[in-house]
Design a protein around this nucleic acid. Structure first.
Lengths: 245, 245
DNA sequence: TGAATATCCGGCCGATCAGCGGGGTTTACA
DNA sequence: TGTAAACCCCGCTGATCGGCCGGATATTCA
């Protein structure tokens, strides 16, 4: 298995690098699933752009029927892959889920009917700006093989997941906000976020108190915020307020 | 090489899992470096706790002389590993650095004198709460081997780096803030962060405007914030203000 | 050449915040 | 059984914010 995996790794990695649009990404996902002998591969990204309300990004090899069914039944609300996947740092083995709850059992039962494997892995990716990705694969393996194969999968997929997320970010995301705020506006916002008052901010930057307020006002407008506090919150999500180190 | 790597991978992974204190972590780093035939291995973590000013965390196999020298010369200010490593998502090949600047050339020159390898990789890890880790290795390889070996290294180290970061987080970090804020305090803070006024917040939560202010006041005290805006900023860094999905 | 944008500064006024004081009940834990 | 902490409410005051009006120059870009 090791060799197959290695060649798949290389080719998939370069294929991801070559992706330039939504469609070729779907193709890559299919090739990835095929190359690794998987039942399914899925990438799910949230909060990719700086905006507050933002549609999730989906690139999956699931049948459209399963996707539809999943949405209809609103499985997202209880899907442990989603619920814990985005909340942790380390990869997730689907075997680890407690399947006592009725809806969760239903979910995994029906998933198998729609062709998903009984074994699964989910790898969270955390971006720098609150953006998150979740790369999940499923396959059918015997219990005794799974422990070994899982490790092989893990190290390939951790890398692939990161590259996937990075690629999706480049395709879909971001940047929209960062350019908008002028240097002064950002400076003021940063100091306000540090708990300074407008007066202190003015002193620090060598401006008049009024000028600082004007910058904050235009910042609020640009970020669509109803208060400085709101603006700081939005800016934080957009990753504008990260200290130099 | 593939086999060596694989066995190192397994053992290192379980060793990391077993780490329970600072000292055993240093040991693991040394074993890791030895197991993979590296000149050095280093983990560097920042913003591990929710607090605003927080010392970086260091676990390295470098000689203490090099660490001292590095600090004295204040290389951190110009070290491209640090400067770009924390700002990106994907791993970093040290070959990619522009070494035109004088101090950068000095840095890499002196690093080699202190036993670091000429080839190097740095893998950023992004946590969920603004915490970041940077796992770097160096080794001596011929250019022609490097491209191949790098890939092998990458997929192992991406996993190891994540596990390392997770372990350090558990050892050092966090949690301190999250417990402190009561449910009400957090609710109020969240709505304030969404741009609501205290009055709106009170209406939403079915409280008196005054009660909301009291919660915000105690929140500010607990977070050591000088304004609601400041509190939101701190809470954001601590990861308290992440929306449910 | 004009339009847009970034950079600055002023005044005004009502709404809101920040900080201080006081009071109480309920729940959990030692 | 006390005690701590969460939960809830009220008063007061001065400082600050938020929004609105006005003005100016410099640079960038189509």
């Amino acid at each position: 298995m090791s060799d197959i995996v290695y060649s798949s790794f290389n080719t998939t990695l370069s294929h991801i690098a070559d992706v330039s649009d939504r469609e070729s990404l779907d193709t890559v996902m299919k090739e990835l699933a095929a190359g690794y002998g998987l039942n399914s591969a899925a990438y799910f990204g949230i909060r990719l752009s700086g905006r507050s309300n933002n549609d999730p990004f989906l690139a999956v090899t699931y049948s459209s029927e399963w996707v539809e069914h999943y949405k209809e039944r609103r499985f997202v609300e209880i899907d442990p892959v989603i619920q814990s996947g985005f909340r942790r740092l380390l990869p997730l083995d689907w075997d680890g889920f407690v399947r006592t709850e009725e809806r969760v059992k239903t979910l995994f039962g029906e998933a198998a009917e729609f062709g998903l494997g009984r074994k699964g892995l989910s790898i969270p990716v955390h971006g720098r700006h609150g953006d998150r990705g979740l790369f999940s694969i499923s396959c059918d393996r015997a219990d005794r093989d799974w422990a070994h194969d899982k490790l092989l999968y893990l190290r390939d997929f951790q890398v692939l997941a990161t590259h996937l997320h990075d690629k999706v970010l480049r395709l879909e995301g971001h940047s929209s906000l960062e350019r908008h705020l002028s240097a002064r506006e950002l400076e003021c916002l940063q100091w306000i976020a540090e708990g300074k008052t407008a007066w202190e901010c003015a002193t620090i930057l060598g401006l008049s108190q009024h000028t600082v307020r004007c910058y904050l006002e235009s910042t609020r407008h640009k970020l669509n915020a109803s208060s400085n506090t709101h603006a700081v919150s939005i800016a934080h999500r957009a990753g504008l307020l990260l200290p130099p180190l």
